[in-house]
């Protein structure tokens, strides 16, 4: 953690190498957030790059007393919400979007060697991804921050500029939606993470 603070401090002084270390450290969490929000690997790559670029531009204003990952993921979440709103209102052409069948190239936890297991797991993830795409952009962000990053309701509220009751309400609604869509025919899940663990951070 101290090492991270040192990198952030050095990056604030204009040290590009320190910022690159931060990029290496947080590329997976930021990319995963963008992928879960946007649903396409290419769009996720672009959004993750843009999020880091925005963080780079604004790192001078970052308060060292606050957790860096929360700040960084907040930037990425806001960027993705903006992108989804632009898509909704047609500011991004359909040609720019990738096919629905696009899948991420790699999973961080790729320890499966059984092809059938792997195929089933990919299918399960594809179904989940499709279900996520049915949620509203802010609801999606609350679910992603909650389940992939174990953010508390207060942290989600701070990250998305919402009130805590609004976050609770959105989380409830989003969970009901996910449950409803998954109940329409999802495969049995394979537990690979600790129930309250944070593999990303």
């Amino acid at each position: 953690m101290n090492e991270e603070k040192t990198w952030v401090f050095q990056a604030q002084q204009g040290n590009d190498e320190a910022f690159t270390r931060l990029v290496e450290q947080y590329q997976t969490p930021v990319y995963n957030l963008c992928y879960r929000m946007l649903g396409e690997p290419e769009a996720a790559e672009d959004a993750a790059q843009e999020s880091f670029l925005r963080a780079y531009r604004n790192i001078g204003r970052f308060d060292l007393g606050r957790p860096f990952p929360t700040w960084l993921l907040s930037i990425a979440a806001h960027y993705c919400i903006d992108q989804l709103r632009r898509r909704k209102f047609g500011f991004i052409s359909i040609d720019e979007e990738a096919d629905d069948d696009d899948r991420p190239m790699e999973f961080a936890d790729a320890n499966a060697i059984d092809p059938a297991y792997e195929a089933e797991r990919r299918e399960e993830q594809h179904v989940l991804q499709m279900v996520l795409q049915k949620l509203g952009s802010t609801d999606r962000a609350t679910i992603v921050l909650r389940y992939w990053y174990d953010f508390s309701e207060v942290e989600i509220a701070e990250s998305l500029n919402l009130t805590v009751p609004a976050v609770k309400s959105r989380l409830h609604r989003a969970r009901r939606e996910v449950a409803r869509h998954l109940a329409e025919g999802a495969p049995e899940p394979h537990l690979e993470r600790m129930p309250y663990g944070t593999p990303a951070l």
Binding site: T28, Y31, N32, M105, E106, Q125, A186, R193
Partner: peptide, 12 residues
């Protein structure tokens, strides 16, 4: 369960 089980995707 499905949400908790979902892995982190990583970039290329």
């Amino acid at each position: 369960l499905v949400l908790r089980a979902a892995p982190m995707t990583r970039p290329a």
